[in-house]
């Protein structure tokens, strides 16, 4: 979770917010074991490689202007979260370039609550400090965050006692309360109940009216159809299609049901 202080940057509708150019990103993982000194010494003689490279994104191009909501859809492991991490500066690209015109706040799946033995309040404080806010700024926003999340006394309880919906509520509240220029939302809406879903949808619409840029990853295709101006479809790290929400979501749904589509000639 990156919280960032409010900026004095005042974007205009239509101006570029994020530009992703030929983005490629690879993770380096170990094949079966953890990378250890022992393993490396052993592999010295044989010259064996003990890392595996996972290509999570491949030549993705995207432009997101201010005042728009871009939805990202795709199967599990398509690289959606990876792209959000790259845009927020957490993962450096392996190829290509990302330009960001404004302050980014992210709402990644597990951002708030990285330390489950701490209370919601302490996690918000730590997340905010890590994201570069001052204690004062966090304190000023805290009431609003707690109110929006409607967690009641649970905000003081350790986050390991939270349900996944409560988790998501807190994360979403933090992200929208600090009012970034560019808001990245990853899957936060899928676990909220109907009441919170509606509340957060309204919030997103409100933010859209405010001339911000939103990038939203969700498996809730209904939500995507409702709030997005544009949808991008990722599959196995590649951008398959982007365009008008209904058209893209229809194509994606068809692909999900049929298992194959004209755009992709491989198994899911």
């Amino acid at each position: 979770m990156t919280l960032q202080s409010e900026s004095d940057f005042s974007p205009k509708t239509g101006e570029l917010a994020v530009s992703v150019q030929h983005l490629g990103l690879t993770y380096t993982t170990t094949i079966d074991r953890r990378p250890t000194l022992k393993a490396r010494v052993r592999s010295l003689g044989r010259g064996a490689k003990f890392t595996r490279v996972v290509r999570a994104l491949d030549d993705v191009n995207l432009d997101v202007p201010y005042g728009s909501v871009l939805g990202i859809v795709g199967a599990n492991g398509a690289g959606k979260s990876t792209m959000m991490r790259a845009i927020s500066g957490i993962l450096p690209p392996s190829q290509g370039r990302i330009e960001v015109y404004g302050k980014v706040s992210t709402l990644l799946a597990l951002g708030v609550g990285f330390n489950p033995s701490l209370s919601g309040r302490e996690n918000v404080l730590l997340g905010g400090l890590a994201g570069g806010m001052t204690r004062k700024e966090i304190a000023a926003h805290f009431e609003e965050i707690a109110d929006f999340a409607e967690l009641g006394d649970a905000i003081e309880a350790p986050m390991r006692t939270y349900s996944s919906g409560m988790f998501a509520r807190l994360g979403f509240s933090v992200a929208v309360t600090v009012r970034p220029d560019i808001l990245l939302i990853d899957e936060a809406l899928s676990t909220g109940d109907a009441h919170f879903k509606e509340k957060s949808l309204n919030k997103i619409k409100e933010l859209r009216g405010d001339n911000r840029a939103l990038i939203m990853v969700s498996h809730g295709l209904g939500t995507i159809r409702e709030v997005c101006n544009e949808v991008a479809w990722l599959h196995k790290g590649q951008l398959i299609q982007r365009g008008e929400p209904n058209a893209i979501v229809d194509a994606y749904e068809k692909f999900l049901h049929v298992g194959k589509s004209a755009a992709i000639n491989e198994d899911i």
Binding site: F9, L16, P93, S94, Q95, G96, I98, Y101
Partner: peptide, 14 residues
């Protein structure tokens, strides 16, 4: 489209 310089640029890790 934009005349302002980007606030952040992320490029491959060197």
């Amino acid at each position: 489209m934009n005349k302002t310089a980007p606030v952040e640029v992320y490029e491959p890790f060197k």
